[in-house]
């Protein structure tokens, strides 16, 4: 275990970014999101949740895949370079680290997504324990311990210090790079901090969220339930829930006419949108109820059915906080949990 005075953190950031791109929570116009560290960035590690999840670091909202053009009458295709420089994502919370494991299941299984894989290979995850969990948090329901997140390096804030524990080989390498700013210390303060966090987690209103109505078997059972007709009604069909979600992984591939060529890019898609999975023959899901159902069935039934029971929700609670109509996955989980099938 190592530690560093919190007041010395800017030096640590500078040292990390000397050799790596450093992404961390930065406050811009009142809201905190992950962004590239610069000397004048307003770093905000006190914010529990960033508005957008850090999934952008590995799976950006929009990225170019390749560009087509014409040179001397011949068509050229230039592939976008894959990520080839190390970068560090600092301050990821336990739920968001688990979310990366969910994304791995999708993008690292055959056929491997090389854009995503190159970022996973070069990215170092420095996670951080949650000091002040929120009412909308329910990571515990998915077996996540926000007091002791996963990651290449795990950090804790306690008193005046930030505690630093490398967990993997990548984490050790990073620790070596910034060793001059870290000093070795006892585990005791961290153990105490973890106990405090777990005590708060025990008081969270959603800690006992009952998931028994969900899982692989729910795919058949819940699909035709009349409950969906009731639940979806207030949905505005915006993409807020999907775009703040750390696990939503659907994307759309589009061509952009640059005037003298074509740029093929992909961008996040949202199952809430009317053109989601639109094909030449039309749309698979032509009502908002079907699109709404898709989002929750995907996270709570289809994903576990295809991934050994792993849910693709991590309980970060972002959708709970930001849905304009106050709909959310918790209301959906509970609606089916009451046995109103």
């Amino acid at each position: 275990m190592y530690r560093i005075l919190k007041s010395d953190l800017p030096k640590l950031y500078a040292a990390i970014s000397a050799k790596n791109d450093l992404l961390l929570p930065v406050k811009t116009a009142g809201k905190t999101n992950f962004a590239l560290w610069t000397e004048d960035a307003v770093v905000d590690i006190e914010a529990l949740k960033t508005v957008k999840s850090p999934k952008d670091a590995f799976f950006p909202q929009s990225e170019n895949l390749y560009t087509c053009g014409k040179v001397d009458g011949k068509t050229t295709i230039t592939e976008e370079e894959r990520c080839n420089a190390p970068f560090v994502v600092f301050g990821i919370k336990g739920c968001d680290v688990r979310a990366i494991a969910v994304l791995d299941k999708v993008f690292l299984s055959e056929p491997v997504d090389s854009y995503y894989a190159s970022r996973r290979e070069h990215g170092v995850i420095v996670s951080m324990a949650c000091n002040r969990p929120e009412t909308s948090c329910f990571c515990g329901a998915f077996g996540i311990d926000c007091a002791q997140p996963e990651g290449d390096v795990v950090t804790w804030q306690a008193g005046e210090y930030l505690y630093w524990q490398p967990m993997t080989e990548k984490g050790e390498v990073l620790t070596q790079q910034v060793a001059e700013f870290l000093s070795a210390c006892e585990d005791a303060p961290v153990n105490e901090a973890m106990e405090q966090i777990r005590a708060i987690c025990n008081k969270l209103p959603l800690k006992d969220l009952d998931l028994s109505a969900w899982g692989a078997e729910a795919a058949q059972k819940n699909f035709d339930s009349p409950i969906w007709e009731q639940l979806y009604k207030p949905c505005l069909a915006c993409g807020t829930c999907t775009f703040v979600c750390p696990t939503c992984q659907c994307y759309d591939i589009k061509d952009y006419n640059t005037g003298n060529g074509v740029q093929r890019y992909r961008c996040w898609d949202s199952c809430m949108y009317s053109d989601f999975t639109m094909m030449a023959h039309g749309n698979n899901r032509n009502s908002q109820m079907q699109r709404f159902r898709q989002r929750f069935m995907h996270k709570l039934a289809y994903f576990p059915a295809n991934n050994d029971g792993m849910f693709s929700c991590v309980g970060c609670g972002r959708c709970v906080d930001s849905c304009p109509a106050h709909l959310n996955i918790v209301k959906v989980i509970k609606a089916f949990g009451k046995g109103e099938k």
Binding site: T28, K52, L236, C238, G239, T240, T242, Y273, P324
Partner: peptide, 29 residues
């Protein structure tokens, strides 16, 4: 600074009572 935060979720458009076009220009393929 304000607009760089936009995540293009379209919540502003979808909640807006004045945005009631059957087909929005931003939904056009």
């Amino acid at each position: 600074q304000e607009l760089s935060k936009c995540i293009r979720c379209n919540a502003c458009r979808n909640v807006c009572p004045a945005c009631s076009c059957r087909k929005c220009v931003f939904d056009s393929t």
